[in-house]
Design a protein around this nucleic acid. Sequence first.
DNA 1: TCCACTTTGTAAAGTGAATTAATTAAGTGA
DNA 2: TCACTTAATTAATTCACTTTACAAAGTGGA
Lengths: 405, 405
Amino acid sequence: MNHQTSSSNQTRVLNLIRIHQTTTRTNLAQETGLTVPAISNIVRGLELLKLVKEDGRAESTGGKPAQLVSFDGTQYFVLGVDMGTTNLRFAVMNLKGQVVYKEIIPTPTTDRTLMNILDTRIHQIIADCASRGIIVVGIGIGAPGIVNRATGQLIYSPNMKYATSEIRTELMRSIDLPIEIHNITKCMALAEQNFDNDDGATDIFCISLGFGIGSALITHSELYEGANNGYTEMGHTLIKPNGPLCACGNHGCVEAVSSISAIIRDAKTAVDRGEETILKTQTPLTGKKVFDAAIAGDPVAIQVVSNALQYLGIAITNITNLLDPQRIVLLGGMTNSKDYLLEKIVPIVQENHFSVGDIPQIQVSKLGEDAGVIGAASLIMNHIFQSASVDPVDWQLTRPVMLAD
Amino acid sequence: MNHQTSSSNQTRVLNLIRIHQTTTRTNLAQETGLTVPAISNIVRGLELLKLVKEDGRAESTGGKPAQLVSFDGTQYFVLGVDMGTTNLRFAVMNLKGQVVYKEIIPTPTTDRTLMNILDTRIHQIIADCASRGIIVVGIGIGAPGIVNRATGQLIYSPNMKYATSEIRTELMRSIDLPIEIHNITKCMALAEQNFDNDDGATDIFCISLGFGIGSALITHSELYEGANNGYTEMGHTLIKPNGPLCACGNHGCVEAVSSISAIIRDAKTAVDRGEETILKTQTPLTGKKVFDAAIAGDPVAIQVVSNALQYLGIAITNITNLLDPQRIVLLGGMTNSKDYLLEKIVPIVQENHFSVGDIPQIQVSKLGEDAGVIGAASLIMNHIFQSASVDPVDWQLTRPVMLAD
DNA sequence: TCCACTTTGTAAAGTGAATTAATTAAGTGA
DNA sequence: TCACTTAATTAATTCACTTTACAAAGTGGA
């Protein structure tokens, strides 16, 4: 029987420990197919890296009780930045996604102030944390729009017009830490995989429901990138022929029909038409106000929200019929109205899906508003998890599909 | 630098040689990150297995000319079976997909005759080949409908009503060779990846356009299976609200609007309405006849086909916007009218796609009617490619994600 | 309270696939 | 012909794993 060398087995063992949170050497040996002495060696290495720690003993199962081995995510920290269209969110967290520092500021409205704020806040936060003994090992950034992760360029971002395309390159000039940037929904998908995935699903479809609608897909336990620059946007699939104009220039995109922007637009139209609704008094209108009015029974709000969610439900049904993922996760501002959202959408999918058995799980992320920053930080964390090393030198090697030297 | 042990590196080297068709040891060393002596060892092993052969010398590049190493797919053979709704296709081919024996018979119309025919023809073909010195090492079967590859069960197949769900289990009773069964479009996707993939694309979306419409997806260079039984059917996504009734029971599925069945149905309806068309004289109507009439300029045929392809074009645009694959491949009976098909569909995608740059490649498979049998055979071939072994004992090991012992 | 048994874990020797280093082989070009 | 380049093998070494043996720490029955 041939097995694999440590560099590879070390990451396998690390990730098994991470998934189990706490386990035994014997169990790791069974799951990997390696022998117990080999596992002992590997675990010893991970302990030296402070990625794993001994954690008491298990109950005896008829013999010597096993020493428990558990993931130690508390020794290293990553800064995640969520570049939202309304707010910039910063969070420093450990490798378990536990946030130790958080900051939210309004998104500046011009190109230069945006870059300046990003640069100064990042420096400040890293310094603040350092003074508390918290050493940040890398920075992950999530941005709305199409991002080329390899080059770090923001390719297309109609909802983030004051961002330059060279955010990462510019920040790298003054910051001497690994920096990664990616599409915010793709980041969220990484967060879901790392920190909201108790059943270890390998195929997860994520939908972020905010002013825009984004999507991201995990297949074979890896983020699906898409060709070239990765235009993987469920929000810009056609759901309503000859429907409303979308920010992308087409008509009838899911985003143009089912996003918070679309709901606010339709609510305003109804108010302007003079329809009888409590929304008249709620200026400025927000998505949450329209949802709350619908939940409270306001007929105009119900009409507006139901219309949006009807199309969204069909769009999600098409995802289940096309991809049959293990789980569909909803994220973003709209999930503030979690119960109402699921009550409306799940029955639509159940009624229209193709498969004979059950539909995939459809759930709202447990990560809430932190999903973005945790996902952004996951861009960096995944390097650690996939190389079993906290040294950025080792991270490069594993990225372009196992090229050595 | 740590690399991996032979069992894993052997498959990497084998597949690199397969992709290059012919290459040099030095080049393999560069691509794998291994050293030349290590590659030499691995290649020697593959030569003993008769999966690789020496193949002359390269031109000198200023020093000793390199010995060329090439993939030898001619020593082992696999039987592929395409269980079509109208025809059963059998083909024996080598590991390069080169067919050495082919047979097409009409699909029987009852359960028992279907199983009997399958059983007797497979035995006969294997015996015939054996007498010519062609040893078949395994059998792959592609079936229309939902297939659980792990259990070998046909879960759901409205277009194949005379098939039992236990095709594989029943055949295994009398055939002492590895047998695999999977959804036919998923098989075709494997064929595309193995034998119609010169640029080494890692993310490919395949659509089979026949009496039904099937789909399959390759991501991260691996077949995407979907949850549970894998209901991954683009043909049953909704494209036309309140559209025609589909075989699945829903209304307005892509299959109900854009398949050959749908085209024939609409053509018949037009004829029945008494519209002026040469299709009146063409009984029984077939998909090809309607396409040919459209190509010849018959206005009713043009109307029927254009309507089907308009919806198909939008459905494909939604795929590009959602997944942005490197390539979309069209297969199945409708691709007999390849030029007309692409002329109609590509402009629709170009007009409606979301991405700023080019749309993904959209092309008709070069494998033609053999795509099904080659794909079915690929179920077996991939075991060889992924284990670098022709011994079925080794195949089991690599399937459930690297379990040893 | 032993004692046989089970399970866990380590220590030490052996294995095998990789590495490095040295050498041979086979070309090019001045 | 000679210096140089590139290709490939051989031989010694390294290192992650395995195998084997044994120690440690529990259970349970007489």
